[in-house]
Amino acid sequence: MDIGTVEVSRAHAGLVNRRTLLLGGLSLSLAGCTAETMESWSSYASAEGSLDPKFRRTRVQYATREKPGTIVVDTSNRYLYVVEEGGMATRYGVGVGRAGFAWSGRAVVGRKEEWPVWTPPPRMIARQPELRKYAGGMPGGPDNPLGARALYLYRGGRDTLYRLHGTNQPASIGQAMSSGCIRLLNSDIEHLYDRTKIGTPVVVLA
């Protein structure tokens, strides 16, 4: 199947400026957790199982005022865009924060980790006491909820405790299920990780 270029409405133009960015919304109290040839659909699907086709990684036309290289997360539509030259972007399907845990604003990628350790914050442990056994950290691996890679979001030089990360629950892509972090398929977070530098700006739309 051909990975076609998808037309995205020009209504997106200036989207970042028109939407309210809750610049103070990176609340620590809510935190949880060059052109490349893409794989064929068959290998992509077999690696991650069935996925709604609209959430498969693809290149699209994307009108925005953000600079090339910027990561834009459209939480309402469950997409993450990496802005490219010429009005194009690579688009990934994502899972987002559930009601009461969604967030928005600007940050930068302050750290990157392969097979990251997951440490649930105290407030999460208070809500889910069964996670207390991981208070010292859960080692990276296939069962780790952060998946294969994590990009740590910083603001003002401080870790916000929010991440762009993989997941061991592919069915959560397209859903609002997380404690605020943005989830991608493991194959997608690996792809994003390899093309993302420390300091990359990230915009999460309300």
Rank of each mutant, 00 (worst) to 15 (best):
L26H: 05
K133G: 02
L15D: 01
D52E: 15
G140Y: 00
K133R: 07
T37Y: 00
F55E: 00
M38N: 08
R57K: 07
E36T: 15
A107M: 09
L21P: 14
P129V: 12
T119I: 03
E113Y: 11
A102M: 03
V60T: 14
F101Y: 09
F55W: 07
T119C: 00
G100V: 01
A102P: 00
R123P: 09
G49R: 00
T34C: 12
T90S: 08
G105Q: 15
G93K: 06
G140H: 00
L51C: 03
S9H: 05
K67P: 02
T75S: 13
I125T: 09
E113R: 13
R123C: 03
I125C: 05
W115C: 10
E7Q: 13
A135N: 02
D143F: 08
T34R: 13
R123K: 13
A11L: 15
G93W: 11
R132Y: 01
R57S: 13
G140M: 01
R91L: 04
F101E: 02
G49L: 03
F55D: 04
R78T: 13
G136L: 04
S9T: 15
L15T: 12
L51V: 03
R111V: 01
S42H: 05
L22M: 12
A31Y: 08
Y79F: 15
S76K: 11
A13C: 15
L28K: 11
G140K: 05
E66G: 01
R56C: 10
T5V: 15
M38T: 11
T64N: 07
K133Q: 02
S46L: 03
E84H: 11
R91W: 10
L15A: 12
T70H: 04
R10A: 09
R65C: 08
G93D: 11
A11Y: 06
F101N: 04
P142W: 10
R123E: 08
Y134L: 02
S76Q: 12
E48G: 04
K67G: 02
A11V: 12
N144H: 08
E85W: 00
